[in-house]
């Protein structure tokens, strides 16, 4: 029989109770009424303490990330799909094909179960879109006031084909820096809801899986030297991490970095630099110089990569400096920030 997401088993409570994490009948009810129907697959159905996974016959990539985004639902996404895409993207950045996810949830006492159903349904949709199965999980409940509704940890396993090595150590002077799309949308979307700032053109998060873009490059014969998804700290943070770890300099052309008008306007108003604002569906690929044009074409052919552009070049610089060529043709450093960007006074 086909499984119906919107036909949940009734639960006695409408909100999360401490007993839902207590190991007793209520916890079992919650799992059977909410989690299992949403994530259903054979491995999960076996109900072991551990999921038994087939041997993929290749190297494995393994990663984990925790999601505490506030608000939990924002224009263009929610914490559930973010928790799937975020970990899938971390796997993809190692060149891996994402295969399996675990889900650990920390729920706050009093959290509406209706919302939990929405979150897990969203996770299932996201997992299906990425071709990954959620094969094991855990649920804990904390006292009211000790959490923010729901926190989600996901860990992911992916298989890495052949002898593919992708990482900062592979980056070489002369490499081209390719960006898969415009930057800053996730950060501005979340900020607009969190701070109650309404913009004329609402900005939606770019929250999306990136493994398809990586697949596009590999299938098209371009082996990226390094891949990184631009999340917290934005594009600037990613470039700095790779420059430092790869012991190379990076030169970026400011005018080449796409920023949609809604993001640009919001950043101007708040005194933020879009290059430091978070993305959740944007990757930076370092490819050999001669592969640059092909990489752009391959990315543009895939969903989510339509806006791919070359934004810069890797240069010799053992100190790992990132230099921005400004719109006026001057050069300045594009540094890591000390902390979060703070909106300025005037």
């Amino acid at each position: 029989m086909a499984f119906e997401l919107n036909c949940p088993v009734p639960l006695r409570h409408e909100t999360i109770q401490m007993a839902h994490g207590g190991g007793g009948r209520m916890m079992r009810d919650l799992l059977e009424a909410v989690m299992l129907p949403a994530f259903r697959n054979d491995t999960l159905e076996s109900r072991h303490d551990s999921a038994l996974l087939p041997d993929p016959g290749s190297r494995l990539a393994f990663t984990t990330d925790t999601y505490v985004v506030r608000p939990r639902f924002f224009p263009g996404g929610d914490i559930g799909e973010l928790a799937v895409y975020g970990t899938v993207n971390d796997l993809a950045m190692a060149g891996a094909t994402p295969r399996f996810l675990s889900v650990g949830m920390i729920l706050e006492e009093g959290y509406p179960i209706e919302e939990l159903r929405r979150v897990v349904a969203s996770m299932r949709r996201a997992a299906d879109r990425c071709g990954v199965a959620i094969v094991t999980g855990d649920t804990k409940v904390v006292d009211k006031g000790k959490g923010d509704g729901i926190y989600i940890n996901t860990a992911g396993i992916g298989s890495v084909p052949g002898d593919l090595v992708v990482g900062p150590g592979q980056v070489r002077p002369g490499d081209a820096v390719i960006l898969s799309g415009d930057v800053g949308r996730h950060g501005v979307a979340v900020m607009s809801v969190r701070e109650g700032i309404a913009f004329q053109t609402p900005v939606e998060s770019d929250c999306a899986p990136l493994h398809g873009l990586v697949r596009g490059l590999l299938d098209g014969g371009v082996t990226p030297h390094c891949l990184r998804d631009a999340t917290r700290g934005g594009l600037a943070a990613v470039l700095n991490e790779i420059a430092t770890d790869g012991k190379v300099g990076v030169e970026v052309v400011e005018a080449a970095v796409p920023v949609v008008p809604g993001v640009e306007g919001a950043c101007e108003m708040l005194g933020l630099d879009p290059l430091y604002v978070a993305c959740e569906g944007c990757l930076v690929a370092f490819v050999a110089g001669p592969d640059a044009d092909r990489a752009v074409i391959l990315l543009r052919a895939r969903e989510g990569g339509e806006g791919a552009v070359r934004i810069g070049t890797v240069v010799e610089d053992g100190r790992g400096t990132v230099i921005l060529r400004t719109r006026l043709g001057t050069r300045r450093i594009l540094d890591l920030l000390s902390g979060e960007q703070l909106p300025r006074i005037c």
Binding site: G249, E251, V253, A256, R310, I311, G312, T313, V315, D317, R319, T321, I323, R325, R331, R332, I333
Partner: peptide, 9 residues
């Protein structure tokens, strides 16, 4: 920043 010459994109 360093004062190395700019490289083209």
């Amino acid at each position: 920043h360093s004062q190395e010459p700019a490289h083209g994109v």
